[in-house]
Design a protein around this nucleic acid. Sequence first.
DNA 1: TCCCACGCTACTTTGCAAGTTACATTTGCC
DNA 2: GGCAAATGTAACTTGCAAAGTAGCGTGGGA
Lengths: 152, 152
Amino acid sequence: MSRDYRLSRMLHVLIHMGQSEKACTSQEIAAMLNTNPVVVRRTLAGLRDQGYVMSEKGHGGGWRLTRPLDQITLLDVHRALGPGALFAIGPSRDSPDCLVERAVNASMADAFARAEAVLIKELSARTLADIVDGMPHVARRKTHHGSRGHTP
Amino acid sequence: MSRDYRLSRMLHVLIHMGQSEKACTSQEIAAMLNTNPVVVRRTLAGLRDQGYVMSEKGHGGGWRLTRPLDQITLLDVHRALGPGALFAIGPSRDSPDCLVERAVNASMADAFARAEAVLIKELSARTLADIVDGMPHVARRKTHHGSRGHTP
DNA sequence: TCCCACGCTACTTTGCAAGTTACATTTGCC
DNA sequence: GGCAAATGTAACTTGCAAAGTAGCGTGGGA
């Protein structure tokens, strides 16, 4: 079962944006993430619509953060990416009228809801600035990406 | 992103086995889950290998529980299904040398680990018998499945 | 002996998000 | 004004892991 790497990727990208003076183009971000510029635009569109980034067309255009890193939580980003499932495991719907299936799904839903509550709490308690603060000192000023772009 | 319904399905099936006097065939279980008998055998093989069910060939053969429902937890079943991901979201590996990516993944890993710990705790604290106890009284004795098999 | 039933391999199909192509539109630079 | 940089978005293709399926082997009870 393939995984959803969008959250990790966007957190990565947003921190780089927060540390850059100029706008980042979709092409540059695509190179950073080993993907296609169109995929970058699709993903960032959600963050733009929720107000965390803004985009500009034309020369010198690209993407910029709209607020400081300490005002964006991991939960903010997760939610801006849209209603994707948190858990890979879900309730089956083979026999909706079956009382056993209902009871099983109810018990699972309760267990998963508790775990989700913890995850939501954890994600909302961390900002992008916290992630930067957790990095080695030298890295805060100059991340791995030099003038020659992201290391493949 | 498709979901993994095996846990829910197996919990469903195991409870029915626990309430049945006779063995359940792969064909019967497949009908219950709207799937193919081969898929049922594949999935139950893991539970058999871990000792929760046993299988018998030939007339009157099929699958049976090896222990009472109150001695099987949701975690037991989950683990018997093999190393599948709990979360749909994962760490990206676009730039393994990038310090930002590492910091992002470390922060996410910590948050997800806390949620996973809660889920593991919840799943290990519930048995299949607890699920049955949570059902309406009449349903405990005679679940929806009558002599004519599972309702589609 | 026959048929029930599991065991398992090998191959095909499916679902769906990413990948890709293509084109429209905006915008700053020269 | 022309050109190139850059986003926006539709439409189509691709990749891939798990389910679906066909087929055959083997054990075992009637």
